[in-house]
Nucleic acid binder design. Structure first.
Lengths: 225, 225, 225, 225
DNA sequence: GATGAATGAGACTTCATTCAT
DNA sequence: GATGAATGAAGTCTCATTCAT
């Protein structure tokens, strides 16, 4: 019943929907966590393909092999599910971009590790679709855009900038613009994300080769091994 | 939602509605063309902000100051309107990217003209939103993605590649990778489009400065003027 | 779509739903007014029997022989329909209770006219169900209870009180308590409303006779005519 | 809503669930009875505020501090719980209204005792809400209306009538109409129930004073003590 | 041609009831 | 016996599309 009169209106009175409390890890809790994961996985698939407005909770439920109503035991509503999904996807990976290197490691090695991580964990997984989702829906979910700026983008950009400053200080990179516009480092990564999602079937893009060429430009041609 | 895009309706079965036949340009035809333009303009505003599924024909009609039913005199349905809109937005500008230069013009000048065109006509207008729309909705409208690959992307990429080949041949650019991965030329442009749409309010990006730095990297530091 | 993102949340952005603007009385306007009436009539029937929460808009639509969605062209939502319905039912009749009499009319005649009006226009129509609805749902719709207190009850009570004061001043009524508790005048009317709605089939109540007896008590036994 | 009352389910087909068999009063039985009471108490609170359709079993369970499923161990379904609740509420009090007086007690004293009982046990408790519930939901639960007519109303009315006949025979009351329409005796009580539930906050009603005035009218002004 | 009222499929959400633990 | 997670029917509301005026 959408209009439960004097309940549906007052947000305050709403019972604490969603978010199951995680008690001691009995059978119940384990299954509960599994369910939650199943829902998130199904939601990712559906949202990635259809966008937020275009995705039906019915489809998510079907894919997760649960009843429609069950979703509401774990998430307050469609929007919450969507946002929690997108938030959860990046937490683990950003750390990999931020690790500051030991003194004796050449910056190029670090960046190459990062690129490999990016290709493996972003381009090679559903995460690339999550990035496209943020791009697609960001303007309609200001909270989402802000979260991703704060938690992902600003940190990645910051890490890139620091890394480039280090490389410039050590004479590994000539052009100081890279520290000022770290976006220039990440730009081909964005191209890769979007190309692989939309145009791969018309003209495949060798992302790794492109990224290698990009690094060669930044650091100067690598000597033959 | 009656038209859930590429689910509820087979592309083949679509009736030949919409698309007004262009008679001789009498008063009728002129007014008719004006209406069509008004609808497209209104549709652009709305789609840019709300996406395809999130936009109501009602809102488009209101913005265009016509009745909802009138839209159906000019476009077969919501999807057709959407696709025709996105197709129309790029036809004029691609030519600007493709013009092949006279022999004596330095490639950097050409690229700078293109960058200026891009900043003025894409970043500075609703076209940047159209790009975001293609990214957002491309996976749900295969025809749209294909059209944009064929009519826009492949031509822009092709032109960039040719231009870079020319620059390399003339010794203006050292690194041959730019001809092989012209995406590297365009990548910061994509960053600019997305940044300006989503993250501008958190951290403004000086697109022109970034693009200049990018060109400096490609062509080597510019001598003092 | 219940969750239209950043629209369904902000009340302000909602388009001015419901309440059709009454233009000049063309064919459209006439039909529009007819529709509205049909919906209200159907809604009355359904709400009277099933209460607010128990009534389905589907049933109202079916009874009014219109499509479900049409209701929303005339009323913003179920609650609005409900409240507008109840408000509309009493406006016309209260005036009849308030008319102050000419000096030479015996108060009993006035009250008898009012009782006749009450029996004919309330007990004999759906209005008795409306009163039961106010009683039933009043506590869940504070605005409704307040409206009915302000627009109906306080006025009826006020008129009764004035009338009784007059009767006492003229020596027609002995007991001054009637002016202080005009509820005592109206009480049998309430009994009639509820009895006729709920218990009529178990034990029919001769409302007119009861009201006559009530008046006899108030004014003293009427002389034989 | 799975149980739309007297629509979705045939009364006849109902399984014989609910109604715990009362064994010898061991610890089990005592605890069981306590649970049952807790559920009924919680149900009263919730139904009184929200009506039948508007009350959620979840809320009742929460208030009774038991699990939702437990309710079904004690009551067959929501409707059964509702009806058993309302039936249980009046059994004890009706007797108080029916006690026939000793010969030498003035009828007014008896009625005054009844009025005091009514004010204390009905107006001053949740019972007034139960009356409002019967009024509200009676038309949707024919069995409920019938039960209340048979078990409560007809007995109260009968007792009133007998009492008035006695008073008239003894010369305590002049007007014979009171025996014919005992509703006239009870009418202000109904007003009090409804007023206190709905309009108290707009205009407080001194129920006891009103009832006293009412008795004065019936029995004639009381002599000064 | 233009209008905008009407339609009705379909989306989200709620909650009585069931049942494995 | 008790629990509360899960179910799915059913309700409200939206909006693309149609069609009488």
């Amino acid at each position: 019943m959408a209009a439960r009169v004097s309940r549906s209106k007052s947000e305050a009175a709403r019972p604490a929907a969603g978010r199951r409390p995680a008690g001691k890890s009995g059978v119940r809790e384990v299954r509960s966590a599994e369910r939650r994961e199943a829902i998130l996985a199904a939601a990712l698939e559906e949202f990635a393909v259809n966008g937020f407005a275009g995705t039906r909770l019915d489809d998510i439920a079907q894919r997760a092999k649960i009843a429609k109503g069950t979703i509401y035991l774990y998430f307050a509503d469609k929007e919450t599910l969507f946002q929690e999904l997108l938030r959860a996807m990046f937490a683990p990976i950003v750390k990999g971009f931020e690790q500051m290197p030991a003194d004796d490691v050449p910056t190029r090695d670090i960046i190459e590790r990062i690129v490999a991580l990016f290709v493996r964990e972003v381009i090679g997984t559903r995460r690339k679709d999550v990035i496209r989702l943020v791009i697609s829906e960001g303007s309609r979910f200001p909270a989402l855009a802000e979260f991703h700026y704060r938690e992902v983008l600003s940190r990645v950009i910051g890490a890139m900038s620091a890394l480039m400053a280090r490389a410039i200080a050590r004479g590994e990179v000539k052009n100081p613009a890279y520290a000022k516009f770290p976006q220039l480092i990440a730009a081909p990564g964005l191209v890769a994300v979007i190309w692989s999602g939309l145009f791969e079937r018309f003209a495949p893009l060798d992302v790794e080769a492109m990224m290698r060429a990009h690094l060669d430009i930044i650091f100067g041609e690598r000597k033959a091994p």
